[in-house]
Each structure stands twice: as structure tokens, then as C-alpha cells.
């Protein structure tokens, strides 16, 4: 244990953030302003998510941090270490065992349960900003439910690409009221947002927190004749053989050779443990790195 207050932030700050979280849960999809603090990491590295996580953690929690589905990337490892050091909480790579999961750009493949909290890192919370740069105007549009502009973006997609080409940060309507940016998760993950766990979104640079309570209706915007599709790359995971998960494409040599693997590393590993095998996988051994 260090000289830091529990989970780095002082108690007053955590209270302030918790109030914002509660307000966000009370008004699903509404962006609640909060006094974002300077964190010991640069903006864009998850300062919003870290503050929300800090406000949620208790000493009994078990924390999991993923970045694009992986537990072992720089960002995930740093944040996990940060909380090990400042809160001394237990950490895990297992989705099932975690009580708080901070994520960047993915929702775990394993369905979450009612006793879990999923914290998203959000770079740009305002879904309307692409077409309307004035914050005063977008706030008014949210207040008055003037969301026609959101469809203009999808319209442009179809006009230019013959289909809705927005592949991530695909806008959703929460509980029939607020249009929300789900953070840059692939649209494959959009349907998972109607879940049992609490979902919290933190944008540090933009000083906004928003939330989706458990079992809240989350509808991806679309057109009647171009319905929403939760698309993913065609193929199966080369390691575990799964064909129902979100896949990352990995270039393996200089000749354009490539393979697809599960983006959720924990899920892939537990499948291999259970004996599933992809075309390039090797049977699971406990001591394999």
C-alpha cells in the first residue's frame, strides 16, 4: 500500500463523481458534466474511465482491464497496475471473476451478470459532433430530441458506400430518449449493450459521464430499408475456432499472409482450455506462455 488515498482520488472527488454516475443512471444516455481531474496519464489513455473506476472500486472488488479486448496490452497493463498500486485491489484477467471491468473499445464476449460493472473509456462523448460542432446547439438538440441529424450521417454512409459503413462508435438510442455514442466499440458489440450489468462511460478530456442501467433498451439507429447489422469479419478464430466472436486480423508475414483471432483474449483462452481448437492452434497446455 502506498501513501495515496484509496484509488488515487480524494474522497470529495470520488463523491462528486459518484453523484454524476447516479445522475447518469437516473437519466440513461444523458451526458452528465463532471469536474474531471488531472490524472497521472495523458488524455486519450483512459483518464475518464480511470476516474469512474476509482469512484466505483471498493477494497473487496476484483478488477479486470482490457484494451481492444486484450488484457495484455500496454494501456490495460498500466491501468491494472495503477489500481493495484493505489487501491491494492485484486486483479484478474477472467471476465467471470471480475466485479469491475474497465474497457477500451470492446465489450467482453462472455455475457456479464447483475453484480458486475462495465466502465468504458470514451474519447468523444457527443455523437452529434461530427455534423454539428457547436456544443450549445448539440445540447439543445438532445434536450429537444432533435435527432434527424444523426440519420444524415448514416444517409451519407449509404450514399457513399452503398451501405452503412460506420463500423465502430455506431450511434444508439437509449430507452427511446437519448441518442448516445457507445464509445468506439465495434458495432458487432452494440446488441450486447442490453445487458444485466451496469454500464458507465467516462470521458476525461470532455468532462462527461453517462450510463446505461441494467436491462435498458438500447437500439442501434438505422433505416427501414437498411436495417442495422452487427457485422464482423468473415471466418473463424485461428486459435480457438470460434466463428461467433469479434475477430482481429493479424498480418503474419511480409507476403500478405494473415490470420483471424478472437479480439477477446480471455474468452479465446477459456475456449482453448475447454478443448476447442482452431486451424492454427495448438492444444492448450497450462504452462504455455
Amino acid at each position: 500500500m502506498s501513501d495515496y488515498n484509496f484509488a488515487y482520488l480524494d474522497e470529495q472527488t470520488k463523491r462528486m463523481i459518484r453523484r454524476a454516475i447516479l445522475k447518469g443512471l437516473a437519466i440513461p444516455g444523458y451526458q452528465v458534466p463532471f469536474a474531471s481531474r488531472e490524472m497521472p496519464m495523458p488524455y486519450g489513455w483512459g483518464t475518464g474511465g480511470v476516474q469512474v473506476t476509482a469512484a466505483c472500486l471498493t477494497p473487496d472488488d476484483t478488477l479486470k482491464v482490457i484494451d481492444q479486448g486484450a488484457d495484455d496490452t500496454t494501456n490495460a497493463v498500466s491501468i491494472r497496475r495503477f489500481f493495484e498500486k493505489t487501491a491494492a485491489v485484486a486483479v484478474t484477467q477472467s471476465t467471470k471473476r471480475a466485479s469491475v471491468i474497465q474497457t477500451r473499445h470492446r465489450i467482453p464476449e462472455e455475457p456479464l451478470s447483475e453484480d458486475q460493472i462495465l466502465v468504458y473509456q470514451v474519447p468523444i462523448p457527443e455523437p452529434l459532433r461530427f455534423l454539428e460542432p457547436r456544443e450549445t446547439e448539440t445540447r439543445k438538440m438532445h434536450a429537444l430530441e432533435e435527432y434527424g441529424l444523426m440519420h444524415v450521417k448514416l444517409f451519407e454512409d449509404i450514399s457513399q458506400h452503398g451501405q452503412i459503413a460506420t463500423a465502430y462508435a455506431y450511434p444508439v438510442m437509449v430507452e427511446g430518449r437519448y441518442v448516445m455514442d457507445p464509445s468506439p466499440i465495434p458495432r458487432f458489440d452494440n446488441p450486447k449493450m442490453e445487458m444485466a450489468a451496469i454500464q458507465l462511460f467516462g470521458a476525461g478530456r470532455e468532462q462527461r459521464i453517462y450510463a446505461i442501467p441494467p436491462y435498458t433498451q438500447v437500439v442501434s439507429l438505422d433505416f427501414e430499408d437498411y436495417p442495422f447489422e452487427a457485422s464482423k469479419a468473415e471466418g473463424a478464430c485461428a486459435l480457438c475456432g470460434a466463428d461467433h466472436t469479434y475477430l482481429d486480423e493479424v498480418i503474419v508475414d511480409d507476403d500478405g499472409g494473415r490470420m483471424f483471432v478472437c479480439s477477446d483474449t480471455d474468452y479465446c483462452e477459456s475456449r482453448r482450455q475447454a478443448g476447442h481448437l482452431g486451424v492454427e492452434g495448438t492444444p492448450y497446455r497450462k504452462d504455455a506462455a
Partner: peptide, 27 residues
């Protein structure tokens, strides 16, 4: 006008603003 949006999107915006949700009709 919205200078970063196509001519079709510019004309379609008001339709979408009042609830049109069929791409083919709007176009």
C-alpha cells in the same frame, strides 16, 4: 447548407428531422 454533407443529404436532412426513416424514399 451543411458544406460537409452531400447534396442529397442536405436535401434529406429536413425529411429525416421530421421522422423519415426510409433511405430509398428520402433519396
Amino acid at each position: 447548407l451543411r458544406m460537409s454533407v452531400s447534396a442529397g443529404g442536405n436535401v434529406g436532412e429536413r425529411l429525416m428531422a421530421v421522422g423519415a426513416r426510409h433511405y430509398g424514399d428520402i433519396r
